[in-house]
Amino acid sequence: MAIEASSKGSWVILSSLLIALILTILPLPEGVPMGMGYLRPDWLALVIVYWTIALPDRVGMLTAFFVGLLADVISGSLLGLHAMGLVMVASFALAAYQRIRMLAVWQQATMVFLILTLVQIVSVLITVQLSGRAFSWLTFLIPLVSALVWPWIFLGLRALRRRFIN
């Protein structure tokens, strides 16, 4: 039974990842100050967290790795940077998925915040080390905004999952 069900509704997962990818590179509208770039949620991480906890047998670290590589290529960053971040996010989510599933949505949001902050710290350290750019503390707003958006992602993707997968 597990084998038959394993590819049903894959398009839902793939499209949600694709949309998250597009949202990641979506330019700010004209006239919006650059600083607003720090208020964007990390869509890819959020979508990966959801699918990892909902369908840990189908979406995991390998998916995160490949999606991360795509994100690196399309955003022109160092190859492997987003990949590493997403793999870390997926591994934390996988390690605790049973517990996260049990939590209420807002508690899950807190977990999401913690996971993303941790990953962001690692990411920033590596970027600063390797590209010599200064970084702004405002980058740590991103996990916060992402956690705030989590409930909608959770509810939305869960509705899709229930409708199209199981």
Binding site: M61, G68, L79, G80, V87, M88, S91, A95
Partner: peptide, 30 residues
């Protein structure tokens, strides 16, 4: 299993990032 797999993938990522930040080998792939 998670720890091992995660470390493996992260190691690959670290290699990629280091290579990409100091050489042009990955340019054609990108």
């Amino acid at each position: 299993g998670i720890g091992v797999k995660a470390s493996g993938l992260i190691f690959v990522c670290v290699i990629l990032v280091s290579v990409d930040s100091s050489t042009l080998w990955l340019k054609s792939f990108k």
